[in-house]
Design a protein around this nucleic acid. Structure first.
Lengths: 150, 150
DNA sequence: TATTGTTATACTCTATAACTATA
DNA sequence: TATAGTTATAGAGTATAACAATA
């Protein structure tokens, strides 16, 4: 958008300029695209990486608890988890007759460390112009708006 | 997330707490969901409403210019525009042998006014806790980060 | 040659309903 | 009765390639 010589830029701005939701969505899409591109060399999508981070921080967590934490529907967790098991990134062990405890395999642990490094580099690339205190303020602002919005 | 008595909340926070992208995405999803729910009674999705707003502000704009402004691929504009024409919300008139000028029909104009009102009410509901100056600062912040990110 | 619009296609994300087996 | 996980399915959003008609 807003390409030089594009005569629509002015009116486009006047329509959506005052809408926070518009700018929020536009930034979120750009950031997610960059994260997806950054993780792609590892063969991971953002949702898969977030599942690995969750299991890494909570060894033995069950599939449905990962789903609850990440806001993913249980029905959609099944193929996601199955793909990670098939790639030998995570292991499943029965807790009882229903639940499965999830842990990272050694390959999964190594890949998760790489994914976490890439995610931090991505954050610095996207938000590195902000000071540490500015980042904290932004996060506090976004958290507050989210708590009110949901 | 963060339901009372959920013992995973602490570790969930510790993983993603420092990531602006995480909070950005979470807020964007919540806001978009509210907007979609708000527009649904009109039979409009956010993308369709944004197309109507664009045509309203730029009568005679072509399909591909709407696509460029909104970041929608031309291939995906075809069914979107076709549906709005079929509902008699917009009209197409040939500019030359290739391009089609888009304008709102009287029904489309009436619906667009309702959609705009709903969008403003949605914004006030989501961000009404912010003062006018705080909203301007948030927009400036998001714009700056977007220009750097894309 | 480049642009407008179309068609076909495919992948991802999200969502609901119905089913099993277990608690 | 409620929960964990699965299966099937469907609707959106997004993406690429190839094509016809026109500039």
């Amino acid at each position: 958008m807003s390409a030089p010589g594009n005569e629509l830029s002015k009116s486009e701005a006047s329509i959506f300029e005052g809408l926070i939701g518009y700018h929020l969505r536009r930034l979120s899409v750009a950031v997610m695209t960059d994260l997806a591109d950054s993780l792609a060399p590892l063969g991971l999508r953002p949702a898969e990486a977030s599942v690995l981070f969750m299991i890494d921080a909570n060894p033995g967590i069950t599939q449905s608890d990962v789903a609850k934490e990440l806001g993913i529907l249980r029905a959609n967790m099944t193929p996601l988890i199955a793909a990670l098991v098939k790639r030998d990134l995570i292991q499943r062990e029965p807790v009882d007759g229903r639940s499965q405890a999830l842990t990272l395999s050694s390959r999964g642990d190594a890949l998760t460390r790489k994914a976490w490094l890439i995610t931090r580099q991505h954050e610095n690339r996207m938000f590195g112009t902000l000071s540490e205190s500015a980042r904290s303020r932004v996060i506090a602002q976004l958290r507050g708006l989210w708590r009110h919005a949901r």
